[in-house]
Amino acid sequence: MRATEPVTGLSPAPGPAATSSVDDSAVAVLGRLSAALDDLPAQRPVAARVIAETDDVRSDARSLGHTLGFDPALTAKVLRLANSAYFGLSGRVGAPSFAITVVGFATVRSLAVAAMAGLEDTPAVLESFWERSLLTAVAAGEIAARLGVKAPDAFSLGMLSRLGQALLVRCDPEHYPALLAAAGDREELLEAENRRYGVTHTRVSAEALAAWSFPEDLAHALSQVDRAGWAVPLAVAVRVGLELSERIVDPAHTPRPVEHLTSGHVREAELDALRLPVQRTAADMVRLLTS
């Protein structure tokens, strides 16, 4: 099922309250952001092609592997991830095309998007960016089945949910770090982002996905993550992932009852049970992807 409201671009008008507070420099940031979304694919053309091919029904692991092969750094990431404990085949994956088979197209696409957004060199101000992103991804993937969504989708969206932060640092290098530093926890950060730009970084992430030809429903789901009210199950899975990752990484984070986040589908006890395995798996991936 698809919600009637589409991803609407970066026009800072999701609500009347936000519109007024956006100043001129913020508008300029959004403009730069929009330009960046246009420019980045040209800078990583292989990644852009990989993204396009993952959505093409005619693609298979072999053809995708062939394309991927033109970007050795991205290939290495896919291979390392395929050999992580998460996919259960530790150490057995040698060929890129097989690695794609193992991690699935969705994850390959996410890695390509991450590469395109320049996440390989995460800005220093984004403290423990990959740790948080992978905790979110793993947790969202683990909870996916409970919510009736595909784990690979949840995993890849979880991984890219913070993508917008990197883009904001890139396009607003003066103010965004300050915004980050001032925010006590994720909630505060989202509020600050909304105040300054009229959008949250999650929303920016969603826009990037939409701009880069990610499947619409994934981008759409991501745009719902930090929006109040009902959300598609995939967005709920990412919410759970974000919540767990913040609980693990950020001691200042005030836990939000997971029952509220999931309309009662997931209970606190389940989240607690996930905590350790998620932490272990994510740590393994962080090591593989950032080394």
Binding site: A82, Y86, F87, G88, L89, T101, V102, V103, G104, A106, T107, G141, A144, A145, K150, A151, P152
Partner: peptide
């Protein structure tokens, strides 16, 4: 499985 050795169901 829907991806790798991971079971979806």
């Amino acid at each position: 499985s829907d991806v790798g050795a991971r079971l979806s169901h």
